[in-house]
Amino acid sequence: MPAIPADRRPWILLTPALLFITALVVIPMAFILVYSFYENIDLAVDVPAFQFGNWQDLLSDSYYHTAIWKTLRLSVIVTVLAAVLGYIPAYVIAMTKYRHKWLLLLLLILPFWVSFIIRTLSWIHIFGNQGALNGLLNLLGLGDLEVQLMYTEFTVIVGFIHVFLPYMILNVYVSLEGIDPNLEPAARTLGATPWQAFREVTLPLSLPGLAAGSLLVFVLTGGSYVTPLILGGPSDFLFGNLVYDAVVTELNWPMGATLSFALLLLLGSVVILYSRFMGMDQLAKAFGR
């Protein structure tokens, strides 16, 4: 049997994945793009058309621009906080000499065994009026200090970080795990303080993981709508909530399709920017290649 040329092998191996992505992502997104040109003439009644009314609305209406701004702003806040909060546990797990490191990793993955909705709802029992936090204040005799944290931007951010932090930690951990453990001691022998050794050796080498984690957290936050729906107040919404409104409550699929595609473009452009400045090969580095 003739040997397959080496340069074709990756494509042959990639074929199932590419077929899968084409069938489940590219074709549905193409349908969504086509639907965005349709016209909604009444609730749940759309007619095939090729017109730009929906796109015009999106580009000219400040309501949508506000939502885009809110989405980008919140995504940046969540990403930065997740990076800061996630780096420390990732570093601890990567550097620990503890024999059962797998146990720490298991703890990290454990929350995924519980439904995302349940995990989000759990914050109501912590920050709520009769939740654990206010219960603790009461116990300490500080009942008068009753704090109203629920249904604010704060709880939305906490909800996002709670759900997405493991993605950041795992990415950073994998990156840290791939660093030669002799590098930091070598820097120390050359006179670097522990902090200098970390700042000038470990941190730069772990940046690909940090960047990959940040990209994931940013994109996941930007595409969310359930967390603000459950934990936010009236003004805490993201662009995804407008897609929900258009499709489910206004039964205007063409507008929903326009907004969905716009969200794809928005988040896609972030990935392109990442690729432009970091290079997609950094993602591979983040995963220890």
């Binding site: 609730l43 309501y63 939502a67 009236p234 003004s235 919404f237 407008l242 409550t249 206004e250 205007n252």
Partner: peptide
């Protein structure tokens, strides 16, 4: 209904 979704969000 479109109006309400907007009013609701500020």
């Amino acid at each position: 209904s479109k109006m309400w979704n907007r009013v609701q969000k500020g």
